[in-house]
């Protein structure tokens, strides 16, 4: 039993629950609150298109909508697998005017 196993076993379950919830609630708020319903599907479809031209690691992708400043910006970050040199990031941004909501 490693040191970390011992620590985990002595941490009370309510505390574990709270830690887990903090992470999951923060993550779900960032992605679902104020974001359009089509976002996950949009992400999948865009990735499928890009995957036809570049070998991409689906784990290395970030999609978010930024609503600050009265303008909605859809931002997709994809790291291209250019192994030898520093990875160049393919950054697609598309902005719309002030959102109706």
């Amino acid at each position: 039993m490693s040191f970390f196993d011992y620590f985990r076993r002595t941490q009370k379950t309510a505390s574990v629950a709270k830690d887990r919830l903090s992470i999951i609630v923060a993550r779900e708020r960032a992605t679902t609150r104020g974001a359009p319903d089509y976002l996950p599907q949009l992400q999948q479809e865009l990735l499928a298109v890009i995957a036809r031209y570049e070998k991409i690691d689906l784990q290395e992708v970030g999609v978010r909508i930024d609503s600050s400043g009265g303008c909605e910006v859809l931002e997709i970050n994809i790291v291209l697998p250019d192994a030898a040199q520093a990875s160049k990031a393919l950054k697609i941004t598309s902005s719309a005017g002030a959102s109706p909501s």
């Binding site: 009370k12 379950t13 309510a14 505390s15 629950a17 709270k18 919830l21």
Partner: peptide, 11 residues
């Protein structure tokens, strides 16, 4: 809650 087995009001 006191035993740390249930989330508290504060949590």
């Amino acid at each position: 809650v006191k035993k740390g087995e249930m989330l508290s009001v504060g949590d």
